[in-house]
Design a protein around this nucleic acid. Structure first.
Lengths: 215, 215, 215, 215
DNA sequence: GATGAATGAGGTTTCATTCAT
DNA sequence: CATGAATGAAACCTCATTCAT
């Protein structure tokens, strides 16, 4: 199931980077056109309004994330492994697609209805996978999580931060990054035994496939 | 040492809420004036440019945060207790001043030089207190932190998220919130013994004092 | 007959300099207030509107000039001497009061009716003295002037230019300046015999008296 | 070598007339748009800022004037004829292009750096041609000029005044105007013999050619 | 006298968008 | 496909001016 997303790639690529960098309201149409090597009038051949463009970006990114999470949830019974993979998925996605994820994380407020509602629904569905993993782990006596809602939010935000600073060209490999975050999350949940690194690779592969990235 | 902050309170209050809510570029001058019960021309009696207003807000908030962190660092030798208090400080600040903290966390990019540089310097000085607590704890063999820079960022982002959702009118008390985040952080750092909750109250008091809040 | 002019000297002095320097429309009220060491609200104790201020400045300067010209015309029968003195008067006034004269010369257009009309009337009355001197000289066979209107305008503009560049602190004395301009004008009018320098001193004295300047 | 000048003619034409008439600061953008039969937003298709427009006008006008002066200087050895032609050039330019020349003469102050510097440089280069003609004439014993700098300024200002009042629809022909000014200038310089009127026609032709005017 | 506070109108410039070519 | 031309609305900010204190 290919998720091409509709909009011309040049335009979407330019938009995602600019929206991530300067925010939706901080990005002008001409700026966008210039980044896409197009005149501002030509832009409108490839998109509806500026807001439609934003909505498309967010829907696309969230759908990919949700698909990946569903795949992990459907194939991983053990709550510890499942949560570790969700962490790896979230971290890898934010590391490899920092622009898209920052837009998703920061620009919901720039959407007006009904697009906002739809995006929020997707995001909630995605977070529900985290909620399930946490509650399953607590029910199984594996996790110590205090208020599970608080914990879920804390862990999600922790992982989302990656998009703000991680560079694939730096010293830290993506695998190590994912492993460290998984370890942090599991320890925070009270698991003293380590998570198996082997499983985390799966998450990285899913991310690559879902986004059409090499290897 | 009173930190009055300069700009007329009405204006600053309105600005901080709008900037937090809709972003700097998403907030218009007329909107701001209306929220401050002023004409848009009158606004300019109380501020320089819109960006000056933003810079003032950020400088003020970061200075308060930095002062509080310095106070904690100066009075708490044990790295575990120190980190727990820093977590409590960060969480309480984000819970009680969600508008200011979100502006600080999201709008650095909207600043142009030289204000940006100054704000970044303040933020770095603040994060340095976290870095010291973590490296002290690792040197003392109390923390297991993998790459300490990654850990620092992960924990900071985790705590910052509070500003996005916590409400003091909800079921969760501020003390419980701070305690849960401190527990999450210490466990993530590999401390299995619990942090003493007694100390955390100190952080709440500092926050209240530094921001001039009741109790 | 003292010509105090009404407006507080501080204000008028500041205004005249700014209007000369940046033009009427290029000068803001706050700028003016700052130059007069007053708040912009306080300005309005000393003046009506900004345009009233301009009109007052122009009326005052033109009245002084007109008085001086009348005095010269009334006391100098010979057209050559009369014109030489008018030149000296015009040049000295522009050299010693460059701000006032530039405002008079450049800002008539910034006046609206009825003030404009009044100022134009004064200016025309002043120029009439030049016209009389020239036509008297032609009638007496002393001047060769082609179209006398053209000549009058040419000579007036020639002399007015002094306000743009002459500095009393430079190498050229005021007397020399006046003498050179008088010589230029008389030669342009076809008088090959020199103008008597002694008379020109009279013009300088009149300027000083009319403007209340030392010596 | 065509000097088309860049900006859309409609806009430049409107601007030059308004700037001449009401001054740069006295001319509003909406006024300008209306005069160009454009909305104020559309104006910005054809220009950068209002100041860019002014700078373009001044650069263009000064370049034409400088070119013409260079041509005259290069082709006229005798200082008397040269000065007469420069006078004719200056007078004709001011008579035929009163708007452009008034803007050049009055609005240098409205320019900010670096445009101001550039314009001043052009103006100085132009005035240098006058300075050379005068000093050549003095060296050759043809001119009596007192302080040559004073004389240069006096003659230039005398001629510039034409833009303020001459109308090609009046009784005075352009040729007569130029001839009279040349005669005034040469007499002022102490030349009692008349300048040859034949040469002056050259100046008129150059002006027409340089500005793309008929005949 | 003097001024801080206030404002309606207007300043220049940019916005997202449309449409004829 | 692509774009230059065009625009109404709105952006931020400054204007000259008034008035209660």
């Amino acid at each position: 199931m290919a998720l091409t997303g509709g909009t011309e790639p040049r335009v979407r690529r330019a938009a995602v980077n600019l929206f991530a960098d300067k925010g939706f309201h901080g990005t002008g149409i001409r700026e966008l056109a210039q980044a896409a090597n197009l005149s501002s009038a030509s832009l409108y051949h490839y998109m509806g309004t500026k807001e439609d463009l934003l909505a498309g970006i967010m829907r696309d990114a969230l759908t990919r994330l949700l698909d990946a999470a569903g795949e992990i949830a459907g194939s991983t019974a053990d709550p510890r492994a499942r949560l570790a993979k969700l962490v790896a998925l979230h971290v890898c996605t934010h590391a490899l697609r920092p622009a898209e994820t920052q837009v998703v994380d920061n620009e919901v407020r720039s959407l007006s209805e009904p697009a906002r509602h739809e995006v929020v629904r997707l995001r909630d569905a995605y977070e529900e996978q985290w909620a399930l993993a946490i509650s399953d782990g607590m029910a199984a006596g594996r996790f110590v999580a205090g208020d599970p809602g608080v914990t879920r939010r804390a862990l999600l935000e922790m992982c989302s931060g990656v998009a703000r600073w991680y560079s694939p060209h730096g010293a830290l490999s993506l695998d190590d990054l994912a492993a460290q975050y998984a370890a942090l999350a599991l320890r925070a949940l009270g698991c003293v035994d380590r998570a198996s690194g082997a499983d985390l690779a799966t998450a990285g592969e899913i991310v690559a496939r879902v986004w059409g990235l090499p290897s």
